[in-house]
Write a protein that binds this DNA or RNA. Structure first.
Length: 835
DNA sequence: GCGGACTGCTTACCT
DNA sequence: ACAGGTAAGCAGTCCGCG
């Protein structure tokens, strides 16, 4: 161990929160003669010895061995705010004893602290408790004292542990302590000191897996009767497919066992031998693990695959393995990465194609049971199974940098980050920063029935039609920049020293003392800008580039969610006045830009939220840029209006009822690329044929400017549809199944198809994207909606009347043509050829 | 008993 | 459990007419 660590030890001791002051000296001497190890913590757990909490960090040492590091020097605490001086209740707190099940819970130490509550300094008492779960028993007694509040009693122990100890999961950690079981397979080190120096991130051993099941067609697959046939594993330089039916093969990665029981045993064995840091599957939380568990139960087999031989905790929604971070790739992709993907579905093959450029093997997996029963050649199915594990591994590689950035911002471990959502990340980030800033963390609201709805911004409503030379500006991170600029925070609200109101509100914020959340938000904006600067300069490896991009995205999304923290009634920092003020400032700045544009004689077409469109008219692009520069100079420092683009042509298209044109437009850029928003071609629950036709029409009208050609094109498509010339794949409609099939009141087409799929043994789960084609027949659309591989003939009338015509009608209208009339006229003589 | 109008459920999109 | 607003398709029901 380098001497740096001893130095660090002295520095970091104050963060220990050790109860007994004498421990400091005791520890110092210990350190000198104790062993030191460097390791990466992967999984953090809490257990109790008696009633005392012990934190265990499972991880891997720099030399590659697994290790468990325990820390029993950390105790739960909370803060008590007295009504009068802290002395008035200090002794009373220490006297409290509550006996539950023969265990006595008490406060073992009270520290006088000066902290901040919503940015205002307060004298409080920090109370340490002798037991892991004892705090809640003490509150009844504490509330009898002369106090005004209790804080941080609802922060999980592991959360405060990681923050107080300044520990980021997956980051290189120096630990000093004693190995308590030197001969064991999993060494356990009792830590006296844990310190993280430079941010060195683990290069994890990742193992991806996938399973195949015997699921005959026309029969529902059930974990009761249908066996697991094969399991594939993939990692760097590691490939293995195990199955229990022999066939001729030279493939060394294929291993045969006798039966399903042996297959399940082999599953355990592979994990034990490989020793992954991270195990990953596609929908493994909700599908693979629960299925394996149900099958294993038949044989009384337990998955004791935890690094300490404990049994994996497999529920129907989540699987957790001690010491190994289980990541369900599907969960993180569909929740966190979804907005970055263009794919309309979250099927493994689509996601893999988009993220890695690699396609899935195309075989009919439905044939597996038949070939299996006939003892035929199973190698294509083994390939298929392995390929799924391989693609899962590849996708994990793409998302890992993003996972790590959220881990670093929140101190949550990989397991939690991979299952979290944006509001959880933002709250975890604020909890961490609160502790660093000595701000007490407000409690979770217990009731929130008085939820007021906020008014959306007024917009300049666009007129439907075709326009030339449209300039588009947008505010970059408008809400975060408002929070930072105008010091929007609970503690700065209605100060006594300032008076200037928020535009349109009888509310004001302090302009002298920077608030906790505004300072943080400002920091995030600055960091983001800095990353952007670095990204612009060259000389970076691909890995650095990826990491910086991931960091930029993570910071941007957390900054963007801070507005939500004020607006969500269940948030710890919920405050309606802050929320309303941010919205009002947003409206104010948008109006400011609109007015300035009008002053400069620009014709403003559209303004919505943080976006503004205007026509250049007779002005040159340089004049628009100059206008933007001047505007930015007049805006607050952190606020930045960006030149999103200049479009030679574009159109706003009214909704079917004609009421709405906002958020429905198409823009043609200089290089001929169409940018379409809100129209059918950007909606996945419209058929491919309708989406393609609409895009082509937009292209003909905006780019080629040929109205008649556009009309003729639609006529051709319609007759092709009617003559059954269109391939079935273009008739596909995608709709997400949002919940359990049984919980639907109305059976819409996608629900009807999902029911059929379930009967056939497909794994249909909430979140699945259902693909279907509308076929011919009596009855409702739902009754005639079919699985793509089962449909015989599509319903041409339906596609013409309900898909194609509705998606082009309003576009022609915006271009000045009544589509239905023009379609009827044989000659279309009245129609001008060009627009 | 029938067909159109209306209502409610549901999904998806944009900022 | 990211909000909020809006569109719009389809299922299912209501309602007026006969």
């Amino acid at each position: 161990m380098a001497s740096r660590n001893l130095y660090a030890a002295c520095l970091y001791i104050p963060y220990y929160g050790i109860i007994d002051q004498n421990h400091y000296i005791f520890h110092y001497f210990y350190i000198v003669k104790m062993a030191g190890v460097q390791f990466y913590p992967i999984d953090v757990r809490m257990r109790t010895i008696g009633q005392r909490p012990v934190i265990t960090l499972y991880g891997r040492t720099v030399s590659g061995e697994r290790i468990a590091v325990t820390d029993s020097n950390y105790f739960p605490y909370f803060y008590v705010v007295p009504k009068q001086g802290v002395e008035t209740i200090e002794q009373d707190l220490l006297k409290i004893r509550v006996k539950v099940n023969d265990e006595i819970h008490s406060i073992i130490k009270v520290e006088k602290k000066k902290v901040k509550i919503f940015e205002n300094e307060k004298n409080v008492l920090k109370c340490y408790v002798n037991s892991a779960f004892g705090s809640s028993y003490l509150f009844d007694e504490i509330r009898k004292l002369n106090i005004s509040g209790i804080y941080e009693n609802d922060i999980p122990l592991i959360t405060s542990y990681m923050i107080d100890r300044r520990l980021v999961p997956c980051t290189l950690t120096d630990v000093e302590g004693e190995i308590t079981n030197p001969s064991s397979k999993l060494p356990v080190m009792r830590a006296d000191l844990l310190v993280q120096g430079d941010e060195q991130i683990i290069n994890p051993k990742v193992l991806a897996f996938d399973i195949e099941i015997y699921s005959p067609k026309e029969k529902s697959a059930s974990s009761e009767s249908d066996q697991v046939l094969m399991i594939s594993f993939y990692s760097d330089n590691y490939k293995k497919t195990i199955l229990w039916k022999e066939f001729k093969t030279d493939d060394k990665s294929i291993e045969f066992v006798k039966n399903e029981f042996e297959l399940l045993t082999a599953f355990k064995r592979v994990i034990d031998e490989f020793q992954p840091d991270i195990i990953t599957g596609y929908a493994s939380d909700i599908y693979s693990f629960p299925y394996l568990k149900k099958r294993a139960e038949k044989y009384g087999l337990k998955f004791d695959i935890g690094v300490d031989r404990t049994i994996a905790d497999i529920s129907n929604s989540e699987t957790s393995i001690k010491g190994i971070a289980h990541v369900d790739v599907y969960k993180f992709i569909s929740k966190i990465m979804a907005s970055k993907l263009e794919s309309d579905t979250f099927r493994l093959e689509d996601v893999a194609l988009e993220l890695t450029g690699e396609g899935k093997k195309q075989i009919d997996i439905g044939q597996l049971p038949e070939v299996w029963d006939e003892s035929g050649d199973l190698s294509p199915f083994c390939d298929y199974n392995m390929n799924d594990a391989y693609l899962t591994y590849k996708i994990f590689g793409k998302m890992f940098p993003f996972l790590i950035e959220y881990v670093k911002l929140t101190n949550l471990d990989i397991f939690d980050v991979s299952r979290g959502n944006f509001s959880q990340f933002t709250e975890a980030f604020l909890v961490k920063e609160s502790k660093f800033s000595n701000e007490l963390i407000p409690g979770k609201p217990t009731h929130y029935e008085n939820k007021e709805t906020l008014h959306s911004f007024p917009v300049i409503e666009p007129e439907q039609g075709v326009y030339n030379n449209i300039a588009v500006f947008d505010f970059k991170s408008l809400h975060p920049s408002i929070i930072a600029t105008h010091n929007i925070s609970v503690g700065t609200l209605k100060c006594s020293c300032c008076t200037e109101n928020v535009p349109g509100e009888e509310i004001h914020f302090c302009s002298k003392n920077a608030g906790f959340i505004p300072k943080l938000t400002g920091n995030l904006i600055d960091r983001k800008e800095r990353i952007l600067e670095i990204l612009k300069t060259g000389d970076k490896t691909f890995e650095q580039q990826t990491q910086l991009t991931a960091r930029y995205d993570a910071i941007t999304s957390i900054a963007g969610s801070i507005y939500g923290v004020f607006s969500l009634p269940y948030s710890r920092w919920y405050n309606l006045e802050c929320s309303k003020s941010i919205a009002s400032y947003g409206r104010y700045y948008l109006n400011y830009v609109v007015d300035k544009a009008k002053d400069e004689k620009f014709d403003v077409l559209y303004a919505d939220d943080d976006l503004i469109f205007f026509r250049l008219g007779s002005k040159k692009p340089e004049q628009a840029r100059k206008f933007l520069d001047e505007l930015n100079a007049s805006l607050p420092e952190k606020m930045n209006l960006e030149h999103e683009g200049l479009y030679p042509r574009g159109m706003f298209v009214a909704s079917k009822t004609g009421k709405e044109t906002r958020r429905r437009y198409a823009l043609l850029s200089d290089n001929g690329v169409l940018k379409v928003r809100g129209l059918e071609s950007s909606k996945r629950n419209f058929s491919t044929i309708a989406r393609e036709t609409q895009e082509k029409v937009l292209d003909l009208i905006l780019k080629e400017r040929k109205l008649r050609k556009a009309l003729e094109y639609v006529q051709t498509v319609i007759s092709d549809v009617e003559e059954n010339k269109i391939p079935l794949r273009k008739m596909m409609i995608y709709t997400q199944l949002a919940r359990e099939i049984s919980s639907y009141e109305t059976i819409a087409p996608h629900v009807a198809v999902a029911q059929k799929m379930q009967k056939q043994g497909f794994n249909v789960i909430p979140g699945s994207i259902i693909r279907y084609i509308v076929g011919k027949g009596e009855g409702s659309i739902a009754e005639n909606s079919q699985l793509p591989n089962e449909v015989k003939e599509y319903n041409a009338d339906y596609y013409v009347e309900h898909q194609i015509i509705p998606s082009v009608e309003k576009i022609f209208e915006a271009a000045g043509v009544n589509f239905r009339n023009a379609l009827d006229e044989k000659e279309q003589s009245s129609l001008s050829e060009f627009i």
